[in-house]
Design a protein around this nucleic acid. Structure first.
Length: 494
RNA sequence: GCCCCCAUCGUCUAGAGGCCUAGGACGCCACCCUUUCAAGGUGGAGAUCAGGGGUUCGAAUCCCCUUGGGGGCACCA
């Protein structure tokens, strides 16, 4: 049978790094083995689920290039795949039917315990240093007793009988795992008193209905797997294979969380990380090719990926390494592509008031040779060359004076440089034409070229670190260079 | 508290009994290149392979124990 895998996010928050990685691994596995990648929305938590988050998650997965073969309808696009709907709140009847079946088989029973009773049980167990578990108060209720409680107006939640014994399975990544049913915490609730189904139940009903063959998910579900296996069996369905991925960790090695790390894919996108880098980085967080290659495009990842090579230990998310990889990928982008991707960031700079005008594609293209290898992220564009698109720059008199120079020398240097630059003229205002006269000037006056260049750099950009000076002067244009040097001379202390 | 999982440089990792006086990458430090900043190049510091027992002629690699870390035990997902 061909392999069927899925990503089943819950729209209770923006697309999370961990969800993205799980989606990626499922996607890589599906594509590698020629299987089917399914997207299912688990929105049964009505309180926390929103359509905004739903859209955010879908957009994020698309952005990453993780396209699914089967999934829910979105924005007018019909659902894809033979198992629609792919949104759990639209599948309520199937959970209801499954619940009725388990009830009829007495594999599940209504539980009328109140939250207070349950809470009291829990406290007592905690005090006795016992693991929390459902005590089974409603497990043996007779039909009459149930009827009496219903007559009292009490609505029962539905609990699944876990029974006893050992549940074992062969995890694709971890090997054989055996868990005693006695450690599951007793009979667990599968349907709330209000009739809405719970995660452990819906996930199994759907995985069964959608014919999933491999369930690839985070290690945090490892301990829950026996519950799922029990449910698959109770439902009379074949149990899929499981693969539990190592967790992505905060620097303190706890499960990656919003509180301690940046977890929203949106934020990475907004900062100018590109999909190739994020995908490449995430793929290598918990898996490796076994070789020393690390810059790998998606098609290459698909070709090399094997679920059996996934690591067992958790991996700390290292933003520095992601940034390095992002730089690697930015350098590999085609000019037109880079220009397109830079545009939203230039617009954002404008909106934020950090630049006054958005440059044309041609302007940006001319800059590419000197900025492409200097961008760790797309968002760094403003910081790098934003001085090009503002009318004036603030020049700090202190930094304007090179370390080995004093104000008078700087004044003389800038004045002489202005003259030399002016002499180059408009027509030949190019890097190759500007450099010789300025070097000659430095030599003639006995200045270190670096000092003279630094004074000019600060005068025209307001900063000490910029792309190569002559390219910068050309990008600025003759008029502005001359004007900015004039202004700089004015701010110099007397 | 109970159950489960995990354990190689600070971090991501290579390593599936001898090729390991443990390799690569990020980060860090030098140097080279160089007008600054990057990029690139070269070199360096950095892991007694968590510790202890076995098995074996031989163990980072296999087994056991200990320790440490993590995850799970909801009418959340």
């Amino acid at each position: 049978m061909t392999s069927r895998v899925r990503i089943a996010p819950s729209p209770t928050g923006p697309l999370h790094i961990g969800t993205a990685r799980t989606a990626l691994y499922n996607f890589l596995h599906a594509r590698h083995v020629g299987g089917t990648f399914i997207l299912r929305l688990e929105d049964t938590d009505q309180v926390r689920s929103t359509v905004e988050f739903e859209k955010d998650i879908l957009d994020g997965l698309h952005w990453l290039g993780l396209d699914w073969d089967e999934g829910p309808e979105v924005a007018g696009e019909p659902a894809r795949g033979p198992h629609a709907p792919y949104r759990q709140m639209e599948r309520l009847p199937s959970y209801e039917a499954a619940a009725q079946r388990l009830l009829a088989l007495d594999m599940a029973y209504p539980c009328y315990c109140t939250p207070e009773e349950l809470e009291a049980d829990r406290k007592a167990q905690e005090a006795a240093k016992q693991p929390p578990r459902y005590v089974g108060r409603c497990a043996r209720l007779t039909v009459d007793e149930r009827r009496a409680r219903e007559a009292d107006g009490r609505r029962g939640a539905l609990r699944f009988r876990v029974g006893e014994g050992i549940v074992a399975f062969d995890d694709l990544i971890r090997g054989r795992v055996e868990i005693d049913v006695a450690n599951l915490g007793g009979d667990f609730v599968i349907v709330r008193a209000d009739g809405t189904p719970l995660y452990h139940f819906t996930v199994v009903v759907d995985d069964a209905a959608m014919e999933m063959t491999d369930v690839i998910r985070g290690e945090d579900h490892l301990s829950n797997t026996p519950k799922h296996i029990l449910l698959f069996r109770a439902l009379g369905h074949e149990v899929p294979r499981f693969a539990h991925l190592p967790l992505i960790l905060n620097p303190d090695r706890t499960k990656m969380s919003k509180r301690k790390s940046q977890t929203a894919i949106d934020d990475y996108i907004a900062q100018g990380f590109i999909r190739e880098a994020l995908v490449n980085y995430l793929a290598l967080l918990g898996w490796s090719t076994g070789t020393e290659e690390e810059i790998l495009p998606l098609d290459e990842l698909i070709e090399r990926f094997d679920i059996k090579d996934v690591h067992k230990g958790g991996a700390v998310f290292d933003r520095e390494r992601l940034e390095w990889m992002n730089g690697q990928w930015i350098r590999r982008l085609d000019p037109d592509d880079l220009i397109d991707r830079l545009r939203p960031f230039l617009e954002a700079e404008k909106v934020a008031g950090r630049i006054e005008r958005i440059p044309s594609d041609e302007e940006v293209r001319a800059l590419l040779p000197v900025i492409q290898e200097r961008l760790p992220t797309l968002g760094a564009i403003g910081d790098l060359v934003g001085f090009l698109w503002v009318s004036d720059v603030d020049v700090d008199p202190q930094t304007l004076v090179p370390k080995r120079w004093d104000p008078p020398t700087t004044r003389a240097g800038l004045a002489a440089a202005r003259e030399a630059i002016d002499a180059v003229g408009d027509v030949s205002f190019e890097a190759d034409e500007l450099e010789p006269p300025l070097r000659a000037l430095a030599e003639e006056r006995g200045w270190k070229a670096g000092d003279l260049f630094m004074a000019i750099r600060v005068a025209v950009t307001g900063r000490t670190a910029t792309p190569p000076l002559f390219d910068t002067l050309v990008a600025l244009g003759r008029e502005r260079v001359l004007a900015r040097i004039d202004r700089a001379i004015e701010v110099l202390p007397a």
